Amino acid sequence: MNGTTPTPVPTLEVRHLRTVFDTRAGMLKAVDDVSFTIGRGRILGLVGESGSGKSVTGFSIMGLVDPPGRVAGGEILFQGRDLTKMSPRELRALQGNRIAMIFQDPMMTLNPVLRVDTQMTEAVQAHARVSKDAARERSRETLAMMGIPSPDERLLAYPHQLSGGMRQRVAIAIAMLHRPDLIIADEPTTALDVTIQAQILSEVQKLVQQQGTSLIWITHDLSVVAGLADEMAVMYAGRIVEQGSVDAVLDHPLHPYTAGLIGSLPSNNRRGQRLHQIPGMTPNLLHLPEGCAFAARCPRVGSACAAQPGLTEPLPGRQVRCFYPAVQGTQA
């Protein structure tokens, strides 16, 4: 024994992930060279506009990309094992058990013609050899853990008898049934009012702390990430353009796109003035420009931007894909 502590294996390590869709118009690069790592009990906020590739990243990790889409390259290491090399049977053993996903629409999780108790007990028994009574008890405990009042009544309800917020809580409870090591949440609170959203975020945060679960929270809402996540990665046109701790990125954005997103928040604009906005549109992923995908919308564009920027680390713990990052005056 040399007394050195072995480095813990991260829950998830994504290396140079590429996911493409083969269309009649050509190959669409939905996710292009995406890499990030999540440790145990950590929350990563994956942020970007619609079409930035953040949801496809989540589906790629879960093995839920269907033709004409496919994972075309890279590694997805879950506790050191590459998910892209697993057989369908090995993947199924992990899905819903060690890795779970919460969708934006809870009805993607819930079957409208089955009672909640039937759906939850079946989900338990799919991965654990327990009696129906034990499965039902675990279902009831998990609903209570999600802050759902009268869990016994909710178990007897059909999805249409529940409010939107309650349906989403049940969907999250189903994801938590097996105390998974990794949860991928794809904008699950977007359609809910802010009060319900705040309650669910608080409950999810508590569960992550208690269970040591790692969480990827996919969203376009920076205010959610600010209060929830430990680290954040900002995606644009299929690539991560900035990455770092939440406080560091929000306080001192290095990439002009991140700065534009933060600047367009209503709280960062004076009352009565027009909202700041990023000019132009997200480029078509089928016809990306040769150089930087953000160049046409960028206030800092320069001659170097005709080439494609690589990911650099201008400050400790901060990664950015930009030739002209706003490093001056920032702190790590």
Rank of each mutant, 00 (worst) to 15 (best):
residue 85 K to H: 04
residue 204 V to G: 01
residue 107 M to D: 09
residue 234 V to Y: 15
residue 108 M to H: 12
residue 99 I to H: 03
residue 111 N to C: 09
residue 298 C to N: 07
residue 130 V to S: 08
residue 223 S to A: 15
residue 238 G to I: 06
residue 250 L to R: 02
residue 290 E to R: 12
residue 183 I to V: 13
residue 271 R to E: 09
residue 193 D to P: 13
residue 95 Q to A: 15
residue 34 V to P: 05
residue 242 E to C: 08
residue 102 I to H: 04
residue 222 L to A: 10
residue 258 T to P: 01
residue 45 G to C: 05
residue 105 D to H: 03
residue 222 L to P: 06
residue 157 A to Y: 11
residue 13 E to C: 07
residue 163 S to C: 07
residue 163 S to R: 01
residue 247 D to Y: 03
residue 123 A to S: 11
residue 76 I to M: 04
residue 227 G to L: 09
residue 302 G to T: 10
residue 5 T to S: 03
residue 185 A to C: 11
residue 22 D to S: 10
residue 109 T to N: 10
residue 95 Q to P: 07
residue 81 R to G: 08
residue 14 V to K: 02
residue 225 V to S: 01
residue 222 L to R: 00
residue 66 D to M: 12
residue 164 G to D: 04
residue 217 W to D: 00
residue 306 A to N: 09
residue 119 Q to P: 04
residue 25 A to P: 02
residue 145 M to E: 15
residue 61 I to T: 11
residue 199 Q to A: 08
residue 208 V to W: 03
residue 104 Q to I: 08
residue 265 L to C: 08
residue 159 P to Q: 14
residue 324 Y to K: 10
residue 51 G to R: 02
residue 270 R to P: 02
residue 158 Y to S: 09
residue 201 L to V: 11
residue 54 K to A: 11
residue 173 A to L: 10
residue 312 T to Q: 06
residue 317 G to Y: 14
residue 110 L to Q: 03
residue 86 M to C: 07
residue 263 G to M: 01
residue 124 V to L: 10
residue 221 D to E: 05
residue 146 M to Q: 02
residue 87 S to Q: 10
residue 3 G to E: 15
residue 147 G to R: 02
residue 108 M to I: 11
residue 256 P to E: 06
residue 123 A to M: 06
residue 142 T to S: 11
residue 296 A to M: 10
residue 285 L to N: 07
residue 296 A to G: 07
residue 194 V to A: 14
residue 190 T to W: 09
residue 53 G to A: 08
residue 134 A to I: 03
residue 301 V to G: 00
residue 69 G to M: 04
residue 68 P to S: 12
residue 170 V to Y: 08
residue 129 R to T: 07
residue 18 R to E: 09
residue 150 S to P: 08
residue 225 V to M: 02
residue 109 T to P: 02
residue 324 Y to N: 11
residue 80 G to L: 05
residue 18 R to N: 15
residue 62 M to K: 14
residue 176 M to P: 01
residue 313 E to N: 14
residue 153 E to R: 15
residue 283 P to D: 14
residue 322 C to Q: 05
residue 25 A to T: 07
residue 1 M to F: 15
residue 106 P to I: 09
residue 129 R to M: 09
residue 188 P to M: 01
residue 5 T to I: 13
residue 328 Q to P: 07
residue 36 F to P: 00
residue 95 Q to K: 13
residue 55 S to F: 05
residue 251 D to K: 14
residue 114 L to D: 12
residue 127 H to F: 12
residue 88 P to E: 14
residue 49 E to H: 00
residue 175 A to K: 00
residue 12 L to H: 00
residue 2 N to F: 13
residue 164 G to I: 04
residue 229 A to D: 04
residue 56 V to Y: 00
residue 276 H to L: 10
residue 131 S to L: 12
residue 328 Q to I: 05
residue 292 C to M: 05
residue 210 Q to L: 11
residue 16 H to L: 06
residue 127 H to T: 11
residue 140 R to P: 03
residue 168 Q to E: 13
residue 111 N to W: 08
residue 311 L to K: 12
residue 142 T to D: 14
residue 89 R to E: 15
residue 54 K to D: 13
residue 123 A to C: 12
residue 172 I to N: 05
residue 315 L to S: 15
residue 152 D to T: 03
residue 283 P to V: 01
residue 293 A to T: 03
residue 276 H to D: 12
residue 136 R to G: 04
residue 145 M to K: 08
residue 104 Q to A: 09
residue 206 K to A: 14
residue 7 T to N: 06
